[in-house]
């Protein structure tokens, strides 16, 4: 079954499956223990190392191996975890499982431009005002009409000493917004990178650690970024390209990492994101097989009732017109051939002496004949006329 086309082959909106977009991705941690080595952490010894790769390697084991920050003796106690997702994803949730006590204060941010700029998705603190200048989240959710970064309670410490920081994109979004119809929501859930700022530890040390060190540190495992590879409704899966970049397997005449534009010849109408109800496939220009390129003209599109705006470029085979649907000057349609035939347009071949010009009727092929001349190409004298010696008046009345 093809998720992007129905049984009859008609396009329909399709989306990749929900995945952990962070799985296997490199995590950039601003602080990791083991350099220099301590008794409990040695970056050069795999048995005692706690690298950030443990955050996104296969997760869910009963005895997880944990990333650990360096010991933090004094303020600032900020540690940043950054996960480049490789391409745009549409987020559903983000979670981070802590091996030690979860932080008392943290912020979740996203980038939509591969780390050049960052915007907050949510804050987590028991002191929202002092920490982030925000009010704690109310039961009503966002106050405004659109999604916004709210301040949620800090994750609770669990009996095992750990805790879970969990965020759902719905948490910051007003109810009733529909992803298909809300560009604001589409923007809200789109991310190329995720960053978690751990800004204040809750307690001292790691309760699992036999050393029970006094200085602060963070320790976590299983960073999950639940989401769908963003393909704007035009692909059901993402693939690695030849350079190892993750890209959508675009359908519906679209292309680009996120299927965010129409393919060069598929510009008969503007690109649109697919919805559940409408595939909004990019349509190929109608050039009757005589052109390889076309461009979109908004004015023609409006005039056509928003049906067709493609204009064929460089019509070949002696054709012309917006759809290469008629013959260029000096050629006429051969009625015995289909419009898509390479030889659909025949040369007028008007006689250099008998014809008054080189351009024939584009439908019938009739050349304009001088007085007394006849024939499709004006190559004969009409009945009652005979050839003269004058090229200006090639046929004269028979005496």
């Amino acid at each position: 079954a093809d998720p992007c086309h129905d049984e009859g082959g008609a396009p329909r909106g399709c989306v990749p499956g929900l995945v952990n977009a962070a799985l296997g991705r490199e995590v950039l941690a601003s602080s990791t223990c083991g350099r220099p080595a301590t008794r409990s952490c040695d970056a050069s010894d795999p048995r005692r190392a706690h690298p950030a790769t443990l955050l996104t390697s296969a997760a869910g084991t009963a005895n997880p191996l944990c990333w650990r920050s360096d010991l933090l003796h004094r303020a600032p106690l900020n540690v940043t975890l950054t996960v480049p997702l490789g391409k745009a994803f549409e987020l559903v949730f983000v979670s981070l499982r802590f091996c030690s006590a979860p932080p008392a204060s943290a912020a979740l941010l996203k980038s939509q431009d591969h780390g050049r700029s960052w915007t907050p998705l949510g804050f987590f603190s028991s002191h929202c005002g002092p920490d982030y200048g925000r009010l704690p989240v109310s039961d009503d959710g966002p106050a405004g009409p659109g999604p916004e970064a709210l301040c949620f309670p800090a994750p609770q410490a669990q009996p095992d000493g750990g805790g879970l920081l969990a965020f759902s994109v719905q948490d910051g979004s007003p109810p009733g917004l529909d992803l298909d119809s809300s560009p604001v929501l589409q923007d809200w859930v789109t991310a190329t990178d995720i960053r978690i700022l751990l800004t204040r530890p809750a307690i001292l040390g790691d309760t699992r650690d036999s050393e029970a060190p006094v200085p602060y540190f963070y320790s976590a495992t299983e960073l999950q970024v639940g989401g769908r590879c963003k393909c704007n409704g035009h692909a059901s899966r993402c693939l690695l390209d030849t350079q190892g970049h993750l890209i959508c397997d675009c359908q519906h005449g679209t292309e680009g990492p996120d299927c965010g534009r129409c393919k060069p010849f598929y510009c008969d109408r503007p690109w649109q994101r697919a919805t559940v109800r409408e595939a909004h496939a990019c349509l190929a220009c109608s050039c009757n097989g005589h052109a390889r390129r076309c461009r979109f003209n908004m004015e023609l599109y409006r005039l056509s009732g928003r049906r067709s705006g493609g204009v064929c470029l460089n019509c070949r085979h002696n054709t012309a017109g917006r759809h290469c649907h008629y013959c260029r000057e000096g050629f006429y349609r051969d009625p015995g051939r289909a419009l898509s035939d390479r030889r659909a347009c025949r040369a007028c071949d008007c006689h250099p002496v008998g014809a008054a010009g080189k351009t024939c009727n584009q439908t019938t092929g009739q050349c304009p004949c001088k007085d007394g001349v006849t024939g499709l190409t004006c190559n004969r004298c009409a009945p009652g006329f005979q050839q003269s010696r004058s090229p200006v008046a090639p046929c004269v009345k028979t005496p």
Binding site: R380, A382, Q387, R389, P391, P394
Partner: peptide, 23 residues
């Protein structure tokens, strides 16, 4: 009646050299 095609060899281009088509 099917008339013969124009015979280019019969035309006298003396005064119309500039109109003479390239063959």
């Amino acid at each position: 009646e099917v008339m013969p095609t124009l015979d280019m060899a019969l035309f006298d281009w003396t005064d119309y050299e500039d109109l003479k088509p390239e063959v």
